[in-house]
Amino acid sequence: MAHEHKLEIFRGAWKFKSNVSKIWGVFTFLCIVTAIEVVLGIIKPEMLTETRFLAMKLLNWIFIILTLVKAYYITWDFMHMRDETSSLRRAVVWTAVFLICYLILILLIEGDYIYEVYKNNYVKFDF
């Protein structure tokens, strides 16, 4: 099985000699990403917390994007998604991504709407 692993990450920019060294490479990468997140979370640079993009702080966008990057490498390399057939990959990833995006979209819009009602109307009931 070992010879069947795809041993390159970052679209072929980083190739590994063996599956074990690839695992350590991915681990290093995940550690670096986590370290960046933690450092940003402690410092909270003014520039990133004050700028907003699509109603969300730039810093939060960075956190979410880095999280998705980590999720990608955990799934692709630790869970061996990279070595599965593309049809299995799509069946798992597209289903989940579509449903989760839809759920997040409707719930966040609804939550923001209720916030506006609380704020601008005379409804204070804490439900």
């Binding site: 989940a96 997040i104 719930l107 609804e110």
Partner: peptide, 30 residues
Amino acid sequence: MMMWFFIVSDALTFSGFIASYGFSRFKFID
């Protein structure tokens, strides 16, 4: 294959929780 089935459904369960956290947070954002 069955483990992947389970993981997808469990991922949706967790997303439901985290999305409802987001819902409540947006509701009381201030």
